[in-house]
Amino acid sequence: MTAKTHLELTGVDIDFPTPSGPFKALSNVNLKIERGEFVSLIGHSGCGKSTVLNIVAGLYQATKGGVLLDGKEVNEPGPERAVVFQNHSLLPWLTAYENVELAVKQVFKNSKSKAEMKEWIEHNLQLVHMDHAMHKRPDEISGGMKQRVGIARALAMEPTVMLMDEPFGALDALTRAHLQDSLMEIQADLNNTVIMITHDVDEAVLLSDRIVMMTNGPAATVGEILEVNLERPRHRLELADDAQYNHYRAAVLSFLYEKQRQPGEEVKVSALSEKKTESDKQAQNLHDTEQSSAEQNSEEAA
């Protein structure tokens, strides 16, 4: 081994205590992530994606095995592993600026002057295009804007790894597309290491360097890992007709709906031929959505 792995999960097991004995949520999860890599975790709901993320965040402790970040064991949460939560988790009594400020004051209290902090907070809010509304409180801005502030807060901590727990899951399709584009832009600039949970196949293929597909729980583990070798910057419009892109999509879909089929889904994906046409249709839908989104200026662009 020449270079040390940036982030490494080795033989991670986790048991949750329940009244009827321990419940094994994860079993032997192994994963290595390089610096600057964008990795998506995808799997059916309840398969333990969030649990993996929470273990890396240090919010849960693995029962067996563990996580190494730059050679150091992770056993508690910390700002070097900033989390973007699914429902933004902004403090509702603080403005966007103050929410980011709370994080910045905590992380840079000894290394930045007051003026530097102010500049850094404003810089991060500019990155997510929220500088126009930085003195508004969460209840005065839209869902997508809240999530942008959540991302700004995480970025402002200058994390070694950014952990995103279905960050766009609660947003409508147009807003989600805008935020994905913003995220790709930021990622091109900063080249952070990112682990993102998603249940959206297109999102995973569009954003990731690698897609980690998880088997169904209980005792879930890493099923397959798919390398996505699409050139960056990626544009969703061009990719919609790209053969390779569709090949990656099909690979993830086939893992999710054939290999890890959940009971009750038999009818939906009974034959491969049917699925093929279905996935084509989805690609077409995505194409249409994109066009309409380009035509109308959505609320986010304002």
Binding site: P77, G78, A82, V83, F85, L91, A103, Q106, M157
Partner: peptide, 17 residues
């Protein structure tokens, strides 16, 4: 909310803060 507590943990806020 558990999420706000998690935010606090990730930021490693002291008990008083």
């Amino acid at each position: 909310s558990a999420d706000l507590n998690n935010v606090s943990k990730v930021l490693r806020l002291s008990w008083l803060t």
